[in-house]
Design a protein around this nucleic acid. Structure first.
Length: 153
DNA sequence: GCCAACGTTGGC
DNA sequence: GCCAACGTTGGC
């Protein structure tokens, strides 16, 4: 099993929205970066777990844990002209963008903030989220990083 | 709102 | 294929 971190701006899609769904399961869609797309399409497996990270908000940080319940499939929002993520260059017979489905395992008892993660830069030296200029919205997390971060909770 | 960092686009 | 211009991300 592998571990990941999934970023979302809470003003666009928050963990509360996922938690409010009947099955607490939803598609993770709208990713429009090729490197992140490749991870969604090729690397993420059913059973993998991921941190749900709130970005571009007052207190950015990790707010919950989700599990992959459906592996990469074409992102339907790319085909939908009504969607803000619509991409006319993505076609059903040659999809450009991919989604996975995630199920909420639990919300954290408190947010593990970005500031707090940075304070542990010694332990998290290779954590991609802390790398300069990082903008990827899907990031791999090592088992060691995963357990260290969860222990902060 | 600012701005650094980075990805994408498109002319050549 | 190069690279300048532009758009986006995302912390602060």
């Amino acid at each position: 099993m592998q571990y990941w971190l999934l970023k979302s701006e809470p003003s666009v899609y928050s963990i509360a929205q996922l938690a409010a769904l009947p099955g607490q399961t939803d598609s993770w869609d709208g990713v429009r970066n090729y490197q992140a797309r490749n991870l969604l399409r090729d690397q993420m497996r059913c059973g993998d777990q991921a941190f749900f990270y709130h970005s571009n908000t007052k207190i950015p940080g990790i707010v919950g844990i989700v599990q992959v319940v459906r592996e990469g499939y074409p992102d339907a929002t790319a085909f939908n002209p009504q969607s803000p993520s619509y991409d006319p260059k993505s076609h059903a017979d040659a999809p450009r963008w991919y989604s996975v489905d995630v199920h909420l395992l639990r919300q954290l008892r408190r947010t593990i903030t970005l500031a707090e993660l940075k304070a542990h830069a010694d332990k998290l030296a290779d954590f991609p989220l802390l790398r300069r200029g990082n903008r990827l919205s899907v990031l791999p997390v090592t088992a060691e990083q995963w357990h260290f971060i969860l222990a902060l909770e």
